[in-house]
Simulated assay, not measured.
Amino acid sequence: MMAEERGFSIRQYTDDDFGAVRTLNGDEQHESYEGAVFVRQAGVLYGGTFLCAVCDDVICGYAIGAPVTGGNVAWVIRLGVLPSHRGRGIGRALMQALEERFAALEIRELYLSVHPENLPARSLYDTLGYMVTEIRSAYFGEGEDRLIMKKNLDTALSSSLSPCR
């Protein structure tokens, strides 16, 4: 079932989405300058792989992917869905759209990190075909362990995939 049939659409991020994505990223509650800078710069640096899910004209989710310079590797650096919209397939649709974008760019390996106790995210990534390649203690500092997960993308299929609108 396509995203539009489930009541949401996936599209590329625009500068008009900044406030909504910043809020969804959780930054406004802490007035985080660093979070605002991250969102603003991600829009410039990763424009083609910064995607938003839209539900009833509201940003209900986003995903940001970052290609690694000089290679055929990329990272998913953010995935977020409004708590009130979880369980509707939005995260899955964002990940699949991001994978399609990267396959079209001939990216062959897609990596991400996830907290070992984030079972909903781990379940999503498992069902999408990501495999744990490494366990990193204190990846983001003390108490911030992460699983590094990887998926091999089939770039041969990218020509048959439709682009995000």
Score class of each variant (00 low, 15 high):
A53N: 02
V54R: 02
V54M: 05
V54H: 04
V54S: 07
C55V: 12
C55N: 12
D57K: 13
D57H: 09
V58R: 08
V58Y: 07
G61D: 03
Y62N: 07
A63G: 08
I64N: 10
A66H: 08
P67F: 08
V68Y: 06
V68S: 03
T69R: 14
G70W: 13
N72Q: 13
N72C: 04
N72D: 11
N72F: 05
V73R: 02
V73S: 12
V73Y: 11
A74V: 05
W75G: 11
W75N: 10
V76H: 02
I77H: 10
R78M: 11
L79Q: 03
V81L: 08
L82E: 15
P83H: 12
S84L: 13
G87H: 02
R88S: 14
R88A: 06
R88D: 13
R88M: 13
G91A: 09
G91N: 07
R92N: 05
L94N: 02
Q96S: 13
A97R: 04
L98Y: 03
E99R: 07
E99W: 05
R101A: 01
A104D: 00
L105T: 01
E106Q: 15
R108C: 15
R108T: 15
E109H: 08
E109P: 02
L110D: 05
Y111W: 06
Y111V: 06
Y111Q: 03
Y111P: 11
L112S: 04
S113M: 13
P116E: 08
P116D: 00
L119H: 11
A121C: 10
A121Q: 03
A121V: 03
R122I: 12
S123C: 01
L124S: 15
L124E: 06
Y125G: 00
D126T: 15
T127Q: 13
G129K: 12
M131P: 04
M131E: 15
R136Y: 07
S137W: 12
S137V: 09
Y139C: 04
F140D: 02
F140I: 12
F140H: 01
G141E: 05
L147T: 11
I148W: 02
M149P: 06
M149C: 12
K151L: 06
L153F: 07
L153P: 05
L153E: 06
D154F: 10
D154H: 11
L157A: 06
L157M: 09
S159T: 04
S160Q: 14
L161A: 14
L161I: 14
S162C: 08
